[in-house]
Design a binder for these strands. Structure first.
Length: 560
RNA sequence: UGACCCAUGGUGUAACGGUAGCACUCCGGUUUUUGGUAUCGUCAGUCAAGGUUCGAAUCCUUGUGGGUCAACCA
């Protein structure tokens, strides 16, 4: 058995190196740390797959930690949605934790910082502080409050905590250097006054710790070995390490922050702020709109956990900015559904077809294969009759040889049924075809084994029997944006690239009767059309389908 | 006029000083009762210039291009 050597991504290489230089494998621990201020998206999925994937690979625990230090933005609704999404993706966290669990510890450590002379209370306004901060190319200057005595700092910080000060009036800052080239090191704020109710700690606190002060210390408390975040936090690493230095005990594990490039997808945006905007402005119908790149949107659209995990695996991780082609995601869902989705027939743009030599009132049951890719999928019964619906695009009065579908005086096979020949059409006063009249070859029934059934005709089209057809609503989705990277244009707002045709609702589609009992979430291949699932809006009275992704269509391509 | 990070086909990634590989996309052939699937194949890449070396995508230098950093957000 030759074990193929799997190449390691750079994070795995770092871990291997750490293991080689003495890190006990049992000390390996990871975490996924979302802020509960929005829904998870496919970019988060990359991070989830990375962290939980490492957990599986190294048999190490992975904590789910909600980074909830800003009560102004965070809500329980988001906590619940995030947990649901991670579980749906098929991952299990070791402990469910909250940064807010550590508020007391963080406060105690802040006191320690003050006592060591490494933190001070600043009474200035945020504008003054910003002014003194300088710019990346100009040094900052010290706050007039920078050298307060420890006693005074302790007293003022206590007052901040008690609620004696108004929001914005006082902050606690780390005393590092106002001349650092890294702006984050210019005496960063570590506590601010916020008289807000927190979704977990209620009104216990009048001060809340900032991200930088919280994150590394939380990793340390949990003894996370590798704290993996995205590239925009690269500059924070220096601060992360500085804060760690203040509390680090050599007998404990020292967490290591490393950064990777976040996953961007073409034709969409991937920032919570922008996604929130789409939701709030009603451009989409909520976080789980099937056009959204959120996990919940993809789920509703018909994406599966496996497709998303396979996508993350294939896309990999690295440190360079990227815009991954959405086609890769689509490849993975098609690849999976091709093997698992039952084939059915649905007509989205119906035109009536009458088989003139088929006895009026006659019905018969035909047998159709459920999935040619899965021999265990079995067969189903399909009622057939004299009047059918076929796709309007599948018929032309005249067409060249490249058109394999139905045309006058030519034959085509009705999938799983008979070979028919078109003879004439009936049109309305506008010239629109209202009926196609044809004749069928009675001996050509699919699977009958007859000579005629083995005849080869160029085209095969799908159909539904009119008396048995079930009306349905079908929602066709296209990309939400017309630009590959809508938020990459400096001079233009991403909303200028919204695709006005991203949703097309067809309310007069017909599906085969076997779909009658279909349940929300069920997935099918509508033959020759694409993969569809039953939408959350669907009821037994009115079936609603979403098109997850169309089938590859080399005919459409040819006609471009 | 700063610091830090990044640079491999159209896209995403691999190669860790020793044959530039994989996947997606695109294009073409074969098969097919889905113009799907499968299968075979084509096109296509190391940002540039120097240097080190028997040998450089890989190490060094310089340049170029892109990104990040000046929220009491995370």
């Amino acid at each position: 058995m030759s074990e193929e050597k799997k190449s390691l991504n750079f994070i795995e290489q770092i871990i291997e190196e750490d293991l080689k230089t003495g890190l006990n494998p049992e000390k390996l621990r990871f975490r996924f740390p979302p802020e509960p201020n929005g829904y998870l998206h496919i970019g988060h999925a990359a991070s989830i797959c990375l962290n939980f994937g490492l957990g599986e690979e190294y048999n190490a625990p992975v904590n789910l930690r909600f980074d909830d230090t800003n009560p102004a933005k965070e809500e329980q609704e988001y906590v619940d949605a995030i947990k649901k999404d991670i579980q749906w993706l098929g991952f299990e966290w070791d402990q469910e934790l909250y940064s807010s669990d550590y508020f007391q510890q963080l406060y105690n450590w802040a006191i320690l910082l003050i006592k060591k002379g490494k933190a001070y209370v600043d009474d200035q306004t945020s504008a003054q502080i910003a002014e003194q901060k300088g710019t990346p190319t100009k040094d900052g200057e010290d706050s007039p409050y920078r050298n307060r005595s420890v006693e005074e700092n302790l007293e003022l910080f206590e007052k901040m905590k008690k609620g004696d000060f108004d929001e914005g009036s006082h902050v606690l800052r780390a005393k590092i250097s106002m001349k650092a080239t890294n702006m984050l090191m210019r005496d960063p704020i570590i506590y601010r006054v916020l008289k807000r109710s927190h979704h977990r700690t209620g009104s216990d606190w009048n001060i809340y710790p900032m991200y930088d002060w919280t994150h590394g210390e939380s990793d340390y408390i949990e003894q996370v070995s590798h704290s993996i975040c995205t590239l925009e936090f690269k500059h924070h690493r220096e601060l992360y390490d500085w804060f760690l230095d203040q509390v680090y005990d050599e007998n404990k594990l020292r967490p290591k922050q490393r950064e990777f490039a976040r996953r961007n997808l073409s034709y969409t945006v991937m920032s919570k702020r922008k996604l929130l905007q789409l939701v709030e402005e009603g451009i989409v119908n909520g976080w789980d709109d099937p056009r959204m790149p959120t996990i919940s949107g993809l789920r509703r659209r018909g994406y599966t956990p496996k497709a998303i995990r396979d996508f993350s695996e294939t896309a990999g991780i690295a440190k360079r900015d990227n815009v991954t082609d959405i086609a890769l995601l689509e490849f993975h869902i098609k690849n999976e559904l091709n093997k698992t989705a039952p084939r059915v027939m649905a007509v989205l743009n119906p035109v009536k077809l009458v088989i003139t030599n088929y006895p009026e009132g006659k019905e018969e049951i035909l047998i159709a294969e459920n999935n040619p890719e899965d021999e265990n999928a079995g067969t189903r019964e399909m009622p057939f009759s004299r009047e059918l619906y076929i796709e309007r695009e599948d018929f032309r009065e005249q067409a060249n040889k490249k058109f394999f579908r139905l045309k006058l005086d030519k034959e085509v096979r009705l999938k799983s049924a008979y070979i028919i020949k078109a003879n004439s059409v009936i049109k309305d006063e506008n010239g629109e075809i209202t009926e196609i009249h044809c004749t069928y070859d009675e001996d050509s029934r699919s699977g009958s084994g007859s000579e005629a059934s083995k005849r080869r005709v160029k085209g095969t089209i799908h159909w539904v029997s009119i008396p048995h057809a079930i009306p349905a609503e079908v929602r066709l989705y296209d990309r939400l944006f017309t630009d590959e990277a809508p938020d990459s244009h400096k001079d233009k707002d991403f909303k200028e690239f919204i695709n006005p045709d991203s949703l097309k609702i067809i309310d007069n589609a017909f599906v085969e009767p076997s779909l009658k009992p279909a349940k929300i979430g069920d997935q099918f291949q509508f033959q020759r059309l694409g993969y569809f699932n039953v939408d959350d809006d669907s009821t037994s009275d009115k079936l609603v389908f979403n098109r997850t992704v169309p089938l590859r269509d080399s005919w459409a391509k040819q006609n471009k």
